[in-house]
């Protein structure tokens, strides 16, 4: 049964990302991307990452995709004709992408780490997933959280400057 579910997710990941990347209309592409993100959130639940699944739905599907859609509606993009949708020199790009993909699949399918941390499933179950993530996030990586806030401040300034119309 678990194999059937995993096979479903394999097929749907590849199929949905293929559908998202080959649509003519960017709005349809973004909507297929929303479906992909919801599937990713369900796989996070399989991997005992409840908080991250919730963040995936709220932040990615809720905020980032709405930003995409707003930009696409804002720009009034015309659908590109078929011969202008693929970049120039596409043969070389295809070869580079396929070889990189082959190397990555070969390397990733042979990784077998021996390290075992102390956050086992029973420990996480007894304390709570969100509580453990919060403790590590704000104790060990407190400076990282501050830096992330700074990184999120810089785009806000850049959006204001880049989006400003010339007077």
């Amino acid at each position: 049964m678990i194999y059937l579910i995993f096979i479903y997710f394999c097929i749907s990941f590849l199929g949905i990302s293929h559908m998202a990347l080959t649509r003519k209309n960017p709005v349809h592409g973004v909507l297929w991307l929303l479906l992909l993100f919801l599937h990713v959130a369900v796989v996070y639940l399989f991997l005992n990452a409840e908080f991250l699944g919730m963040v995936q739905v709220i932040v990615y599907a809720g905020a980032i995709l709405v930003m995409f859609l707003f930009t696409i509606f804002f720009l009034d993009i015309k659908i590109m004709p078929k011969e202008r949708r693929i970049a120039k020199l596409w043969e070389g790009r295809l070869v580079i992408g396929l070889s990189f993909l082959a190397v990555m699949v070969l390397v990733f399918s042979s990784i077998s780490p021996t390290y075992k941390g102390k956050h086992t499933i029973s420990y996480v179950e007894s304390v709570g997933n969100t509580r453990i993530i919060g403790e590590i996030l704000f104790n060990e990586y407190g400076l990282g959280v501050l830096l992330l806030g700074l990184i999120l401040l810089v785009p806000m300034i850049s959006v204001v400057i880049l989006g400003r119309r010339k007077a």
Binding site: H18, R85, W90, G97, F100, L101, V107
Partner: peptide, 16 residues
């Protein structure tokens, strides 16, 4: 890796 590769092909091949 397969999902990453799909995205990589999209980045390399798309013109929009």
């Amino acid at each position: 890796a397969l999902v990453f590769g799909m995205g990589l092909m999209g980045v390399l091949l798309h013109r929009n």
